[in-house]
């Protein structure tokens, strides 16, 4: 090889090295750890908690069931599931889960799809004028 060709070869190698360096640095910058939360899920959570109180088919339905027999039967769970599924669709989330007092859980939405982000919210069911209070966990997956 002539000296000129060696120089061209050197230059090409150096450029390749610079490109590799750039790609590595850019990749490091791009793969910065995530924020640990998702604002869209937060907004959806706010709306779902609000709907839990405002929509008679959710909070009031669950409260009525708990007041009468202390748990939800199959029909009530099916109705709540359908309502939650509708909200999951409207809010643009893959899955919504509602659990009353660490007991019965209702899962709605496409549970087969892989869900990435999750946000958990809490509401309360007030029974007997506040003498009994149950914590309701509402979880959303994106």
């Amino acid at each position: 090889m002539r000296k000129g060709q060696w120089l061209a070869f050197d230059a090409t190698l150096a450029l390749c090295a610079a490109l590799v360096l750039s790609v590595v640095l850019m990749h490091n910058a791009a793969s910065h750890p995530s924020t640990g939360g998702d604002l869209a899920l937060e907004r959806a959570g706010y709306d779902l908690v609000n709907a839990f109180y405002m929509d008679p088919a959710l909070g009031q339905r669950v409260a009525a069931a708990l007041k009468v027999r202390g748990y939800m039967n199959e029909t009530e769970m099916g109705d709540v599931n359908a309502t939650l599924g509708r909200y999951a669709q409207q809010l643009g989330v893959k899955r919504v889960e509602m659990q009353v007092g660490g007991g019965q859980a209702v899962v709605a939405g496409a549970s087969m799809l892989p869900a990435t982000e999750k946000a958990t919210f809490y509401a309360t069911i007030t029974l007997n004028g506040g003498a009994e209070n149950r914590l309701v966990r509402l979880a959303l997956w994106k």
């Binding site: 706010y46 908690v49 609000n50 109180y53 809490y122 509401a123 309360t124 069911i125 007030t126 007997n128 004028g129 506040g130 003498a131 209070n133």
Partner: peptide, 14 residues
């Protein structure tokens, strides 16, 4: 919001 909404069903004695 949760506190305000749930408080609506609370009676004074509870």
């Amino acid at each position: 919001n949760v506190i305000l909404q749930s408080h609506r069903n609370v009676t004074q004695q509870n």
